[in-house]
Design a protein around this nucleic acid. Sequence first.
RNA 1: GGUCCGGUAGCUCAGCUGGAUAGAGCAUCAGCCUUCUAAGCUGAGGGUCAUUGGUUCGAAUCCAAUCCGGAUCACCA
Length: 600
Amino acid sequence: MIFTTKIAAAVNESLQDLYTQDITGSTDNNFQFQINDTKPEFEGDYTIVLFALVKSLRKSPEAIGQELGNHLLKNNPNFFSSYNVIKGFLNVSIKNETLSSLLQENYQNKNFGSKAKNNQKVMVEYSSPNTNKPLHLGHLRNNFLGWSVAEILKANGNDVVKTSIVNDRGIHICKSMIAWQQFANGATPDSTKEKGDHLVGHYYVKFNDEYKKEVADLIEQGKSKEEAEKEAPIMKKTQQMLLDWENGDPKVMDLWRTMNGWVYKGFDETYQRIGSDFDHTFYESNTYLLGKDFVQEGLQKGVLSQKEDGSVWIDLSDKNLDQKLLLRGDGTSVYITQDIGLAKQKFEEYHLDKSIYVIGDEQLHHMKVLKETIRKLGMPFADNIFHLSYGMVELTTGKMKSREGTVVDADDLINEMVSTAEQHTMELGKVKDFTSQELKELYEILGLGAMKFYLLRVDPKKKMLFDPKESIDFHGFTGPFVQYTYARIQSILRKVATENFDFSKGIPSNDLLPMERELIISLEKYDTAINDAANELNPAVIANYVFNLAKLFNAFYVNHSVMNAENEEKKILRLHLSVMTANILKNGLHLLGIRVPQRM
RNA sequence: GGUCCGGUAGCUCAGCUGGAUAGAGCAUCAGCCUUCUAAGCUGAGGGUCAUUGGUUCGAAUCCAAUCCGGAUCACCA
C-alpha cells in the first residue's frame, strides 16, 4: 500500500512534468496507468503498465517507458534504484535503503498492520442458531466467517458490534419439546451425560420419524397424503403447543425454558471452544412481535395495501420482486415483519453506519425483499444493510439435513480434528517434554487452526464441498503450515534471545539479498490485504496472504541462516525480518480466529 | 418458466475493476535432515480457463448466446 500509492504519486508527477503540454483537450491531468507486481521472471519490484497512455500521448509504449523511467529515477533518487522497459511494461526496482528503513520503522511500530481509520460503526450478525438442534458444519462456516469479518473490520479501523439472533421459538422448537415429552421418560443432560443441544436434537429427529410413521399409517387407513399430514396426532399436538406457548401457558413456558437452557449450555461449550463471542444476543422470543407498527404506518402512508381478508402486502414488482405478505389476515406477523422491526431497532439502538448479516445464500431473495421493503417504508438505512451471503457446505455423501440426522456435527468434527492433530504430533515427537496440559492446548490450537483455515480459505460466496471420509489436511495450504512457520521463527528467537541483541541501533546494512527484499516487500503488503479483505468482506484474502508470506519465509529460512549469518549486520537484519514475519503471521491468523503455538 | 450464483490441472481452489509464458495446495514422480523445527524445501509431469461468437493493440477476466450444476421465487423460519 505504501509503495503502490507512493509509486502512483511519483508516476503521476513525472507524467505531468513530461507530458502536460502534449495532452490535447483535457486539462484535468488525468493519466491512466496501472501498477502491478512485477512477474518473477522479470527484473524489478513493481510494474507500471503503459498501454493506456499510448493513445493520448501518441507515442510508442517503449518511448514512454524510457522517458518515464528516466524521469522517475532522476526525480526520486532516494526511492528507485533502477528501471527497465519491456514492451509496454516499465519495471522499477526500489532501493535497498528504502526497504531496510521501512523494515526498521515498522519494527519500531511493532507492526505492518493497517493504519486505516474508517471509524464506522458496524454491526455483524452471525451464527444465529435454532435451539432445537446442535450446530453442524454449515454453522461452523457461518461462525468462522462472521467472527473473522468482524475482526477484519476492526483491524481496518471500524468500531464493530458482534451480534447473534437466537431462533428460540416457533413450531420447530415445539417439535423437539413434544417429542421429548412423549419419548424421553424425563431424560436430561445430567441423567444421560449428553450435551444438552445434542439431547434436544435427538428429539427433533425423533419427532420427524414419528411424524412420518403416523402419516404413513393414516395413508394406509385411506386418507390422502395431504389429510394425513394435517391430521397426524403428533403434529396436532405440536400446533396446540405453539398456541399454548404464545398464550404463555406456564407449563409449556417452563418446559421451553428448561429445554432451551440445556441447548444454551451446549452451545456455550461449543462457542467457547471455537472462540465465537458476541457483544449482544437477540432472542426471537423477544423480537418476534416487532415490526407491526411499521406495517400500520406503511398502510397510512399508502405504501402498503390491505386485502379483503385483512392481510397486508407490499408491492415490489417495480423492483422485479413480486408482492410480499407482511401481516396475515388474523393480524399475526411473519418472519420478514420482525426482521424489519429488528433492523430498525439495531440502527437506532447502536447508531450504526452499517449492518452486516452473515446468512447463507439461500436467503439472498429474502434479504433483497427485506432491503427493498425497508426502503419503501421510508427508513433511511436501507442502503446500509449488507448481506454477506455464503455458499452452503455440501457433502460428497449428499445434502445435510438436521431433520434426518445426515449432518456433520460440529462437536464431532472438532473432536476429530483435535485428535488428528494429536496423532500428527505424536508421530513427529517434537514436544515430548510438554505437560499433558500443554499438549491438550497444542492439539486444540492445531486442530481448530486446520479447520478454520480450511473453511475460511475459500471465497465465502462459493459453495464448498466436504468429504466426511477424508480428513482435513495439515500440510500445504493449511492453518498448521502457517502455524508451523510461526513456531519455527519462535525457535530461532529463543536461541538468539540469550545473546541480548540491541535492536534499537537499527539495521546497519543496506546490502540486501533478493529473498530479503522479497520478504520486506511482502510484509509491506499486509496492509493492502487487510483493506481488500475488509472491502470485500472476504477472509480468504487474509488466508491467501498469510500462506504466501509463510511460504516465502520458509524458502528464505532454508537458504539463509539467521543464527549463523555471514556477519553481524546480516544477523541483525534477519532478526528484524524474522520478528516482523512472526508478528504478521500471528496477527493475520488472529483475524481468522486462529491461535499460534510457540512450539509444535 | 423468472431471477440470482457458479463451471480454471485428476481433486480442492486462487486469479475476474482487461496486460508479459494462466498460479497454489493435494495426489503422482525425482531429489534434500552431522548447520536456526523435514507439519519444511527444491525440481518434473499435468490446462481447449464449459462451448461459440463479439468488443480491441491485448480476453480466464468485459458483452451476447448456448450447454451443465446449484439456489430461490410461502400466510416456514
